[in-house]
Structures are given as C-alpha cells and as structure tokens.
C-alpha cells in the first residue's frame, strides 16, 4: 500500500472513555492490518489521554500516541487538528480514520485540508481491493450506495458509528507520548463552560437500539411512554420532525434528512407515518419495528415487524412485557 504505513485511528474521547465508534474503527483496522501491511496506531488527544490508552490496546492497536494536555480537556477544533497532524506525521499512515461525529468531522476535514488529502465521509464499509482502500458510503439518505476511494495517500475518512463490530483483540500496545506545538490560531478558541443538561442519555448516533416517537404520541407529556420503553431497552430516544416542530421534544432527538442519520441494530417507530424524509435518517437500521394505528401507514412498507394498534396501549404493554421477561431470565 504505497510507502505509507498502516492505519491511524484518531480517537474520540467521551465521558472518560473511548467512544464506541473509535473502538469499532480500531477493530476494523486490526482486521485489515495483515493486508494493509502496516501497524494500527491510535492517537488519543485528551487531558487524561494516558489513562485511555490501555483500552485502545485491548481492541487491537499496535501503537498508541498520547497527546495529554489540559488544553485538550474539551474539544477545540484547531487544537485537535494540530494534535492529529502531529500523530499523522509520526505514524505516516496510508489511511486516517476519524469518528463520524461533529468533532470527528471537524478533525477529519481540517486534517484533509492541511494534507491536501482525499476525504471520505460517513463510511459504512472499509475493504482493501488490489492493494487499495475502498470504502462504502450511503448517500441521499441511503437511497444510493457507492463504493469510493481516495486518489491520495494518506486518505482521511470518517466512520459512521455502529456499522463495524467491536471486538477485543488484546495487544501490548506501545505507548508513545507526543508533545504538540499548537498553532496560535488554534489557541484563539477558548472554552468558557461545559454544560450538561441531559447527562447520562444514550447517544442517538451510537445507540444500538432506538425507540422513536412521532405525532401519534399525541402530546409532550405522553412522550414519557417512549422514554420508559427506551429505558427498559437501554435504548436512545428518537423523534420525527413533526413533534420537534411542535416543541414536544428537543431537536437533538430528530431523526431524518434534516436531523440525525442513525444505523442501529433495532429501531422501534411509534406513531411515525414513515415519510421519506424520516426514512432517510433510519432506513439503514438492521431491524425496524413499527407501531401505528393506521394499517396503510408508509412505515409498514419497510418495517420488518409491524403492529397495527394504538401506541398508548401497545407501548406501555411492551415496556411491561420486557421488564417481565428480563426479571424471569
């Protein structure tokens, strides 16, 4: 694979851990390592980066670059690009993988611009064909799926959460401390305050199960039914735009073309009609379950399992049923 060496994963620190998508990327990179013909390195940029490095090794990293500085306690775009660039210079990888998250996109795009490298966004597949990295990318809300490659080496890509498996493959990773000289323009951005209004919620993009509610939920108060089912399933909560526009839930929950794109293992749509713009954000879910009282609702055209019924009855009954089965097992 050219004269470049292996794959570098730019880690996303999250709540004192490494984000799932980072572990998924490391797992995928290690599976390709033999063919890629180079090591899997990871760079961790955080105030507590050293403490996070063992986890990278557990998922198969050969080498972990650690940029540990209080300046990196909270994401700062320019500074993270500076640090990622230092790791790219040290590792000289053929491919750089970043998280498919707002932070990851900023880092990937910044690095690609500095490197003049091809940028592959939101990939859901990564293979090596004839010695070249080929990625899969769903576009237009998953209505077209393309295979792409970068014409540069290194290439930079962002990885959609939840598409690669996360498997432990413990290795004694070599830990290398990197000291980075941050550029003056990166230091212009200062963090004033970190506000956690909804600490502990399951991240929508990373969730493997999502319970989503639409206008059929009827009111803001009644959305509690959706939350209760989500808690029982350890799921994240999603919503259609209709109820975001109504102000029943925060727009952070919106799934769809003008909301979030999610690829969970399971998506339970409650009182959602299944409009094309909603489908655009969730039709790559592995399994879709729909609860809707209208037998003609479009959602039933692409749900794997549908119940025609009143969500006010079915959703609480499902919460109870799952609780009962969990207690029994």
């Amino acid at each position: 694979m050219s004269d470049k060496n292996g794959i570098l994963v730019v880690a996303e620190p999250k709540d004192g851990k490494l984000a799932n998508v980072t572990l998924e990327s490391i797992t995928r990179a290690s599976a390709l390592a033999a063919t890629a013909g180079g090591p899997v390195s990871v760079v961790i940029i955080a105030a507590d980066a050293g403490a996070l490095s063992a986890n990278a090794g557990r998922y198969g990293a050969d080498r972990v670059y650690v940029v540990e500085t209080p300046e990196a306690a909270v994401f700062r775009p320019g500074l993270f690009v500076d640090a990622a660039m230092a790791a790219i210079r040290a590792a000289d990888p053929a491919l750089v993988l970043c998280a498919g998250s707002p932070d990851g996109r900023d880092v990937a795009s910044g690095c690609a611009a500095r490197l003049g490298a091809g940028l592959l966004v939101d990939i859901t597949g990564l293979e090596i064909q004839d010695g070249r990295f080929v990625v899969t990318h769903p576009c237009f809300g998953g209505s077209v799926i393309v295979e792409k490659e970068a014409t540069t080496s290194p290439a930079v890509a962002t990885v959609r959460p939840n598409v690669f498996a996360r498997e432990e493959a413990p290795r004694d990773a070599e830990v290398v401390a990197l000291s980075v000289g941050f550029s003056p323009s990166s230091l212009l951005t200062k963090v004033l305050e970190v506000v956690c209004e909804n600490a502990g919620i399951v991240s929508l993009e990373e969730a493997s199960v999502i319970v989503a509610g639409g206008r059929g939920v009827g009111s803001a108060e009644n959305f509690a039914l959706i939350r209760e089912l989500a808690v029982e399933l350890g799921a994240a909560v999603g919503a259609s735009r209709a109820i975001v526009d109504e102000g029943w839930v925060h727009h952070q929950y919106q799934v769809g073309q003008t909301g979030k794109t999610v690829s969970p293992q399971l998506y339970i749509a409650c009182g959602i009609s299944g409009a094309i713009q909603h489908a655009a954000g969730m039709q790559t879910a592995k399994c879709i379950v729909a609860i809707n009282r209208d037998p003609e609702a479009a959602i039933f055209n692409f749900a794997d399992f549908g119940i025609v019924g009143d969500l006010n009855v079915v959703v609480p009954a499902l919460t109870t049923e799952i609780r009962r089965r969990k207690a029994a097992s």
Partner: peptide, 30 residues
C-alpha cells in the same frame, strides 16, 4: 481527490410481518 468506483440502489426494504393488535401486540413484538 476522491473517486466513485461504483454505485447501486440498496435492496429495497420489504414489508415484513404486519399484525393487527388484539391485545397481544406487545407480546408479539417481544
């Protein structure tokens, strides 16, 4: 600096099972 090699429409999702709730809907889902 990127190139599309091929494109396809995904297998359209098919309608799966659809059951009218008769009080056992939740159990069916579970």
């Amino acid at each position: 600096k990127t190139r599309v090699l091929s494109g396809r429409s995904p297998e359209p999702r098919k309608a799966g099972v659809k059951i009218e709730d008769d009080g056992t809907g939740a159990q069916h889902i579970a």
